[in-house]
Amino acid sequence: MKVFILGLCFFLTSAIAASAQKKASASKTNSPHSEQEIINLSKKKWQWMADKKADTLAALFHENAMFVHMGGSWGKEQEVNIIKSGGIHYKHADIQETSVKFIGNTAILLSKIRLLAVVGGNEVTNPFIVTEVYVKEANKWTLGSLSFTRLMGN
């Protein structure tokens, strides 16, 4: 009888573990969000910035978006105006590494980049870790935050 009960416990434990593994792998493959979708959106954003497509970027930027640069921080309207006026021209972002994490309907993308830009009429190249926060509302991703952290010694 002890052997039967022990065998039954082993069988039930194995069945529960197999069911949990199946659910875990199903939730990974059926994720409502796609890392690649966010990576592609970020790449488009960099191209739009290089092309100075301020109106296209304005549609991507959330109304309450915040932008953090080496020289300060500001909201959507000022960022769009800076791009329109050429105050900052993001000429090329050489993306070296990228990762994406999701928290609910929020995507956090980290990129290690080497940015070629014209700032105040001077062409500069800087290594950055860039944090982009995207929020999905009404089935559409918008950029909620863009922050540049300059890497030292690169």
Rank of each mutant, 00 (worst) to 15 (best):
L115R: 03
K112Y: 09
K23T: 14
F61P: 00
K45C: 01
K52A: 02
Y90H: 04
A93N: 06
V68C: 09
F61E: 00
V124I: 10
F67V: 13
Q36T: 10
F102Y: 10
Y90M: 05
V118N: 04
T125C: 04
I83E: 00
Y90E: 02
L109T: 03
S42T: 07
P127S: 15
V124D: 08
S34Q: 04
S85T: 10
E97Y: 15
E63N: 14
V130F: 04
G72W: 02
K91I: 10
S73H: 05
A26T: 08
V133I: 12
K112H: 07
L115A: 04
G104D: 03
S85D: 13
V118T: 09
D55Q: 14
K23C: 12
F67P: 01
W48M: 15
E63K: 15
D51M: 14
G86K: 08
A107E: 01
T106L: 11
G86Y: 09
I88L: 12
F67D: 02
L115H: 03
V135F: 04
G72V: 13
T56A: 11
D51N: 15
F128Q: 13
N40D: 10
G86M: 07
P32S: 11
E35T: 03
L109D: 02
K28W: 09
A107C: 12
A50L: 06
P32M: 15
D94W: 11
W48H: 13
T106Q: 15
G104M: 12
S85P: 03
T125H: 07
I82G: 08
V119R: 12
